[in-house]
């Protein structure tokens, strides 16, 4: 028996709707679950006091510092490289075998799993370069990890700047670099900032690459050569070793809120950027 096309259509569409609803339900559940269980325990005291007894009691202040300083260091290193690469790819060269190789390299780098970054960071920065488990080892490893995102998003942003802007600048006698610096970059800035925010989000959530390079010391770091523990690593240790479910939920809630707000802000900037370009 062959069904009438109209019935297969109704059946197919209902399945599609169900699948979409399941996906959305999972998202809502994850966020509601973490925030529902965790937010109860989050207060100023939790955020700004030191952990006691391996994190069984007390707060998460040192991990908060770690979570801010590691991505910051990674950005400091990776942003010039990422933006520079995208300027080169869009403004200084044509599509050629060289640009294809560069793009392929960035794509491959983006596909490498974080545990491999962790292994590499451990053997290269921690052991070979003798930096030890430290903020600098972790920051450099994260910089390697976020570079492809930065290249990709800055390139999109720079490509979105209309060519007429460049032509006007050239016709006024500006050199290529003057055009890039005074015309292209200011107009591409919101898009570049979006890429930076997304990279920060990814760095904050990263665990495998960080735990083997920055270590997991719960002390406040004194310099960038000290070990530090990020919130993600702290959460992993609390949850995996069953140290404290309460504090694990609370840390997870802080983690999820920080990442969601970073991502929301970057979407907002991106949307405004696209809207202004469409005008």
């Amino acid at each position: 028996m062959k069904l009438h096309p109209r019935y297969t259509q109704i059946g197919a569409i209902s399945l599609l709707v169900i699948a979409t609803l399941i996906t959305l339900a999972i998202l809502v559940f994850i966020i509601a679950f973490v925030l529902g269980r965790g937010l109860l325990y989050v207060n100023a005291d939790f955020l700004f006091s030191n952990p006691e007894d391996m994190g069984r009691a007390g707060g998460i202040f040192p991990t908060l510092i770690g979570t801010i300083i590691l991505p910051l260091l990674a950005l400091l290193i990776a942003t010039p490289l990422g933006v520079g690469t995208s300027i080169y790819l869009t403004e200084y060269t044509r599509e050629s075998r060289v640009t294809r190789i560069i793009r392929f390299g960035a794509d491959c780098l983006a596909g490498i799993p974080s545990i491999i970054f962790g292994l590499f960071g451990y053997i290269f920065f921690v052991t070979t370069l003798k930096m030890g488990w430290s903020i600098i080892s972790g920051g450099l490893t994260l910089a390697f990890m976020i570079l492809p995102t930065l290249i990709r998003t800055s390139e999109e942003a720079i490509k979105a700047v209309p060519n007429s802007y460049r032509e006007v600048s050239f016709s006024l006698g500006a050199t290529r670099w003057q055009t890039v610096r005074k015309v292209v970059l200011p107009n591409a800035l919101p898009g570049i900032v979006t890429g930076i925010m997304l990279s920060v989000g990814r760095s904050i959530g990263e665990t495998a690459a960080v735990i083997f390079t920055a270590g997991s010391s719960l002390k406040l770091p004194g310099s960038i050569f000290d070990s530090v523990r990020t919130m993600s690593v702290h959460f992993y240790v609390l949850a995996r070793e069953g140290i404290s479910n309460e504090n694990a939920y609370a840390t997870a809630a802080v983690l999820v809120i920080s990442i969601l707000s970073i991502n929301l802000v970057s979407y907002w900037i991106m949307n405004r950027f696209i809207a202004s370009k469409l005008k």
């Binding site: 490289l81 520079g84 690469t85 190789i101 560069i102 780098l109 590499f120 290249i151």
Partner: peptide, 29 residues
């Protein structure tokens, strides 16, 4: 202008250099 072009060309190879560095060190170990 020439100097900036040189610098940017160098930077553009950072991703591929990182990739090679990672592969080399993992293979070496």
């Amino acid at each position: 202008e020439m100097a900036i072009r040189r610098v940017l060309t160098g930077i553009a190879f950072s991703a591929i250099a990182m990739l090679i560095l990672i592969i080399l060190f993992i293979l070496k170990e």
